[in-house]
């Protein structure tokens, strides 16, 4: 557990940089994390981030398959929006825990 300053605010993060208190999250912090990850956030990113935060809030596990069926983006677009490791990046930016699913 550590404290990191993102967008001028101190937030709790774990050793991998994932936020541990979802209530501290806001859009400025998301943009701050995104900049570190090399992602520039658009309205579509935020729409998807909201969707991810809602899913996690109700306890659903996140998979790329589920995101592809979210109605916001398909899997291919998702990979383009968060290049590299999309699920890890998207959850980090959304201020939710790193997904534990293998698929």
């Amino acid at each position: 557990m550590a404290i990191k300053t993102i967008a001028g605010v101190n937030v709790d993060v774990n050793e991998e940089g994932y936020m541990t208190d979802a209530s501290q999250w806001n859009k400025e912090i998301a943009a701050g994390i995104a900049a570190e990850e090399g992602v520039e956030l658009t309205d579509q990113h935020f729409e998807l981030i909201d969707w991810i935060r809602n899913k996690v809030a109700v306890g659903d596990s996140l998979t790329i398959r589920a995101i592809g069926k979210s109605g916001i983006v398909d899997a291919k677009q998702f990979y383009k929006m968060f290049p590299g490791a999309p699920l890890k990046k998207a959850t980090k930016i959304a201020g939710v825990p790193k997904p534990t699913s293998c698929i």
Partner: peptide
């Protein structure tokens, strides 16, 4: 039930990611 897709859809996901 574990969200493992059928083979064809799984392959689509792999190709979607490059």
């Amino acid at each position: 039930a574990l969200d493992m897709p059928p083979v064809s859809e799984f392959l689509e996901l792999i190709v979607a990611g490059g």
